[in-house]
Design a binder for these strands. Structure first.
Length: 460
RNA sequence: GGCUCGGUGGCAGAGUGGUUAUGCAGCGGAUUGCAAAUCCGUCUACGCCGGUUCGAUUCCGACCCGAGCCUCCA
């Protein structure tokens, strides 16, 4: 059995992955702050860690995968105030939309989806613990984590407190002892949502929930913690500080961070305003195309988002589905955990491009082989690989015949035209046959004559 | 200013101290009533300068260029 190797942000190297408990893995991935639609950049970690989840499930008998929902945050508060509604109206609406969008990308639901507002108690007690142990202090109504109280603060992001001082570009609040100190708990005004605490009515700082929820659901030390690169600092650094100082121990054994989705070579982000929402893109492309595009580069490399990228993803899927379509009548019972080339590629730090190459090899075999055993093996590779990658989930005929929008000819109309053309061909009236083909093509339908008759698909 | 990561063929994108990545596009052929799909063949590579080595795209150093973090952000 191939061993799993994963790059660890902490060490800066690929490491052999061994779960702390024999056959059981715990993974936590930072989820969305639910105040608006997820953009395609937000979807990258979801899809990447969904692949990892699938690989882990194939390899280990128990995988506990938690992805949080941040449903208390200043941005949600602002959105709610603008709309004149309660924050829960905003957070519930966008939690639902997020789930729909991610499901459309074939991302499996995590084992647990903890919400911040359901863990306020845990956050308060974690904060208390940090105050008691001298790692946090109260100042001007806030409770702050004292970064100088932690010996190796900065170890994850590879920075030193002194260096950070030099580059501080932000006004330092005067209630902080050190510029790097961050908020654990902050006061709420009357109009802001808040919870009673030993420090008065307030709400948690944004790093706190993950520490508290990891502890509550996955325990003191987890195997894998993932998220986007931009979370390394300050979010994960601070999470680590909170958890390590409050509870001691390892906290996280493998830190994993995906690179960004870029737009014209520049990071896609809400603050830059160059985003494309998943929802908008789903109106133009099948979810599988978006997913395929998102994993067409290795997760630690930047991915430039473009029409061309999506068209390439579509064409890769077309060729895999096309190979399967040739053998569509065979029963399928793939085993994703089988020791296939796709599996081995993914075991090497999720090398999805190498996995794609193996998928293409399997498809080529299906297209040209006449050996039943070989065909069987290739189908297993392709379908099993598809399960690990979260692709090829549709029926091949459905894939080619689906229209992204409702417009166009119905399947029945197309079949009728095909029958008319077959009759014309039987009469050797090729002129009529060709005019039918051309008419269909003008409506975006491509005919393919094969040994077993004519099949059709919708062109892109 | 500090820290991190990267520069591969027309494009996308892996990998390796000496041997084909892969896909798309291009070109030539096969197949087809015509197509499409498919198959076969084929062309374009490893930022720049040094060093180590029998041999470097791959290791080391300098340089140039790009991206990111240090601030909400996946």
């Amino acid at each position: 059995m191939a061993e799993l190797r994963l790059y660890n942000t902490m060490s800066g190297e690929k490491e052999v992955f061994t779960p702390q408990h024999d056959d059981q893995v715990s993974m936590y991935v930072c989820g969305p702050t639910v105040y608006n639609y997820a953009h395609i950049g937000n979807a990258r970690p979801v899809v990447v860690f969904d692949c990892l989840y699938r690989v882990l499930k194939a390899r280990y008998s128990e995988v506990r995968y938690a992805r949080n929902i941040t449903d208390i945050d200043d941005k949600i508060i602002h959105a709610a105030q603008e709309q004149g509604v309660d924050i829960s109206a905003v957070s519930e609406e966008f939690t639902e939309k997020y789930r729909e969008d991610m499901a459309a990308l074939n991302a499996l639901a995590p084992t647990i989806e903890p919400k911040a507002t359901e863990h306020i108690e845990e956050m308060i007690s974690l904060t208390q613990r940090l105050v008691e142990t001298g790692h946090a202090y109260e100042s001007d109504g806030h409770v702050l984590f004292a970064v100088e109280s932690m010996q190796d603060y900065g170890a994850l992001s590879g920075r030193k407190l002194d260096d950070m001082m030099a580059g501080a570009r932000v006004e330092v609040a005067d209630y902080k002892r050190h510029a790097g100190d961050f908020v654990l708990w902050k006061p709420s005004t009357e109009s802001e949502p808040g919870w009673d605490s030993p420090w008065g009515r307030g709400r948690p700082g944004w790093h706190l929930e993950c520490s508290a929820m990891i502890r509550a659901h996955l325990g003191e030390s987890i195997d894998i913690h993932g998220g986007g690169r931009d979370l390394i600092f300050p979010h994960h650094e601070n999470e680590r500080a909170q958890s390590c100082c409050a509870y001691g121990g390892d906290f996280v054994r493998h830190w994993m961070h995906n690179a960004y989705v870029d737009m014209d070579g520049e990071k896609m982000s809400k603050s830059l305003g160059n985003t494309r929402t998943v929802r908008e893109l789903l109106g133009q492309y099948p979810g599988e195309v978006l997913r395929c595009a998102l994993i067409s580069a290795q997760y630690r490399s930047p991915l430039n988002f473009s029409e061309a990228l999506l068209e390439q993803a579509r064409s890769a899927l077309d060729s895999w589905y096309g190979a399967l379509r040739r053998h569509g009548s065979l029963p399928d019972v793939p085993t994703p955990g089988a020791d296939t080339a796709v599996y081995r590629a993914l075991m090497d730090d999720l090398n999805t491009p190498e996995a794609f190459a193996a998928m293409h090899t399997a498809a080529a075999t299906l297209n040209k082989s006449t050996d039943a055993a070989e065909i069987d093996r290739a189908r297993g590779e392709l379908l099993g690989g598809g399960q690990l990658l979260g692709l090829l989930a549709s029926d091949p005929d459905m894939w080619f015949q689906q229209g992204v929008s409702a417009e166009g000819l119905s399947a029945g109309e197309i079949e009728a035209q095909i029958a008319a053309r077959a009759a014309a061909k039987a009469d050797k009236d090729y002129q009529l046959a060709d005019s039918i083909r051309a008419a269909l093509e003008a409506d975006g339908v491509v005919l393919e004559d094969g040994a077993a008759g004519t099949t059709w698909r919708r062109g892109s």
